[in-house]
Amino acid sequence: MLETVWFVLWTLLWAVYFLLDGFDLGIGSLMPFLASDEEQKKVMYSASGPFWDGNEVWLIAAGGVTFAAFPKVYAVMFSALYAPLLILLFALILRAASYEFREHIEHASWRAVWDWTHFIVNILACVVLGVFFANLFRGIPFDANGVYFGNLLKLFNIYGIAGGIFFLLIFMMHGAIWLSIKSTGQLKDKAVAAAGVLWVGVACMLLIFLVLTAFYTNIYSNYIRMPWLIILPVLAVIGLLYIPRALNHGKSFLAWASSGLFIVSVTFFGVMGIYPNMLISSMDPAATITAFNGSSTTLTLEIMLVVCLVMVPIVLLYQFWMYRLFSKPVPPSELDEHLY
């Protein structure tokens, strides 16, 4: 029971990470497509400027909770998926550096270097996260001792690549919607238009991904076994369908919330689909690590549950306050104060 609660909580942390950092990564991935001059670039940087750091902590929390609640999962997952995780890490380090360094020197080529870095590492992070999760759903080759028998290229199988593109499109759409909240005029129009186009891409990729999921994973077996879980894909579809409606009525916040609902539901859809497995071995079913054989002791799970049940709502509360504080578009005259 406790293990199941932790499995759900673990999924929730990842879902919140995607929900929040997803739009930062998406805006960064859209940068050269939407910003046509320095001022628009500044608006795009300032749209995620105050948020990305706090958002990134959800990744650290998700990683830390994997370590605390499921040490065996953490150990095997992180060592087996060594290459993609370090690529993600390098991308996130360079993303932070690009926010910070870009603003300090007013020189066109200096800024161009960091703009390109920013763009490339944001795309890279989106794709790696997608490839990573698709392969988690599918299973990776490792033995009972946690020794991995694959390599980086093998993660870029058809299903992995589909996952990468799917995540990238979702985050770009999510980012475009957030940008429409944080911008005005021409850039806002471009953001709304981009969100519309990306929405079509996301919907197509959703269908493709769901079909591929049937071929490459066992995710649907959980939905046959526990039909009430169907609520997850239903919520995802509701969220997705509501986005264009809200955008057409100029209700950007509602569109963003719908997009958030979609992201959270899709995450739960995938991860609950492999429950109780957490790290599936494609080599040896006996090596598969589950929430039950990979977890910490009851004592640790209980202590950490208290910590999380107290702290996570508090964090959500003050981050919500912070989002409200910075949710308005920044007027051009104050733009420089909203950059590093």
Partner: peptide, 24 residues
């Protein structure tokens, strides 16, 4: 991990969120 992991997780949830959010 049963011992060490929880200390890192507590660090993230109790302190690091606060620091990263409020510095912004």
């Amino acid at each position: 991990g049963d011992i060490f992991g929880s200390l890192l997780a507590i660090e993230a949830t109790v302190a690091f969120f606060l620091e990263s959010t409020f510095i912004a």
